[in-house]
């Protein structure tokens, strides 16, 4: 049995991969969300600032337009603000430390058969699954 959300997942995934292919073949850049934002935040990407800001404008702006016209999907993000802040800090520091996140290491790295991308993806998946097991099933936090 195939569920509708899997088809939307595949369709959205193809769009994400298409965006990464466009950014690679036209601009010559790796489409990694944490790297593009991180270079703006800490100033290390100053020489490519306009390109980074344009990418981020599209990333925030186009979903904003879609959600205004077609309705906003629910994010179901927890309203436990301590959890939200801790998670945000860990995601920000971790992705910069590891030099990539789901888009850079995951989408762009795996498709290139990059050892770093594959290993990073396996580790953050394992860490995420372990965290989920402990935080949800042992501690009942989330």
């Amino acid at each position: 049995m195939i569920e509708m959300s899997w088809i939307y997942g595949l369709l959205g995934g193809l769009m994400i991969g298409g965006a990464a292919a466009l950014f690679l073949l036209v601009n010559g850049r790796i489409m990694g969300a944490s790297g593009i934002l991180g270079g703006v935040v800490d100033g290390t990407g100053f020489s490519t600032l306009a390109e980074r800001l344009a990418f981020l404008a599209g990333l925030v702006g186009v979903p904003a337009l879609i959600s205004m016209t077609a309705g906003a999907p629910a994010t179901h993000l927890t309203d436990n603000l301590i959890l939200v802040i801790l998670a945000g800090l860990a995601v920000g520091a971790g992705t910069r430390m590891a030099n990539g996140c789901t888009s850079g290491h995951g989408v762009c790295g795996i498709s290139r058969f990059s050892l770093r991308g594959i290993v990073a993806t396996l580790i953050y998946l394992a860490a995420g699954m372990a965290t989920m097991a402990i935080a949800r099933h042992l501690l009942g936090l989330i």
Binding site: T75, H76, L86, C101, Y124, L125, A127
Partner: peptide, 15 residues
Amino acid sequence: GSVLFGLGWALAGLC
């Protein structure tokens, strides 16, 4: 870094 990212990713469900 990947361990730290995976931890935060699971806690909030956002990357």
